[in-house]
Nucleic acid binder design. Structure first.
Lengths: 178, 178
DNA sequence: ACGTTTCTTGACCGTGCGGTCAAGAAACTC
DNA sequence: GAGTTTCTTGACCGCACGGTCAAGAAACGT
């Protein structure tokens, strides 16, 4: 299935034919339709499993941290690392959000991610580290920074993860001023 | 051409056929291929003209402002307003970045936008309002916040522009802490 | 050993696509 | 108003797509 993700990522969903997928896998077409009921379902499967994998990684990395602000930082860092290791998925995610068929799945996953961050933000507020604001908006903004910097610096310019992560967290914590 | 953009936005680029486009326009297929050499070229034309329109709006809105920080704020605000007025284009832009054929065009436009912001950031640094950091990274982060909040609050949740703009600028200026 | 279920094959089908083009209609000369 | 250029039409073409299915190979149970 990783094979399929790679193909989709290279050419895009529509331009990649089932024919090409099975050829790359070295199997007949029938075997594809034995395991998946359609090209669409196959794609959804790829998206879902990538999402859960990413979440697992985030959770695992955050596990030891107790400080909410640190949890956010580590979450950003680990997400960037995951996206770097799964270059293919970034474009696929981005494409999927734009298609009505796939958007709900993507939105759900992203809502989970935003929820995670928002929880840490709330915790930080409770501890008085962040002044009271809408936690959801802050979390959304953080996700926005993360994903845009990932695209620009990780994929287009291939810069080292740690450096990008450092820039991302610095901006999220202090903004332009401060 | 706005008609075409709408169709593409509703169904996506590939699933929208030339047949449908000309039907929606109420003309024959030949007239499409008289003015455009391919579906692809037509799409590129839509993207380019939208990009220049957005930029014009940004520049016009910023025109009177002299304070660099205010320029950034007004730029964010006006961009959000434009995206709200051209709902169709958001998905189209997002889709186009993921396709190798169209990505260069999109990247160029976005680089121009980032360049604009980065210039204001530099100015603000010169005036001592922002401490020295990489202006390009800051500008990229701002664009990231803007576009993600636009998607979430403007399109998915249909919240008022001013409120979203206020949240976006606040985060960009002060981050979580500050 | 043999029946049965689980997989695998690839030729094949109907469909709808992007793009063409012979045929004309309008609009524009002079 | 004849001649020429600028548009417009829609039937048509070749093709490649997603998906099917009859046929058979492996694997398994007994």
């Amino acid at each position: 299935m990783a094979r399929g993700a790679q193909l989709f990522a290279e050419k895009g969903y529509h331009p990649t034919s089932v024919q090409e997928i099975v050829a790359a896998l070295g199997v007949g077409k029938g075997v594809f339709y034995w395991y998946f009921s359609s090209k669409e379902e196959f794609f959804v499967e790829i998206l879902k499993s990538a999402q859960t994998d990413l979440r697992r990684r985030q959770q695992a990395a955050i596990g030891d941290e107790t400080e909410p602000i640190r949890r956010i930082e580590v979450g950003i860092e680990e997400s960037l690392r995951w996206f770097r290791e799964h270059r293919e998925m970034f474009n696929l995610f981005q494409f999927a959000v734009t298609q009505e068929k796939f958007a709900p799945i993507l939105r759900h996953g992203q809502q989970v991610a935003v929820g995670d961050v928002a929880r840490h933000v709330k915790d930080a507020m409770a501890e008085g580290d962040i002044k009271d604001q809408d936690p959801d908006l802050l979390a959304q903004a953080i996700v926005g920074v993360m994903s845009h910097l990932a695209r620009t610096y990780l994929y287009e310019r291939d810069e080292p993860v740690d450096q990008v992560a450092q820039g991302a967290t610095a901006f999220c914590l202090h903004g332009l001023l401060g």
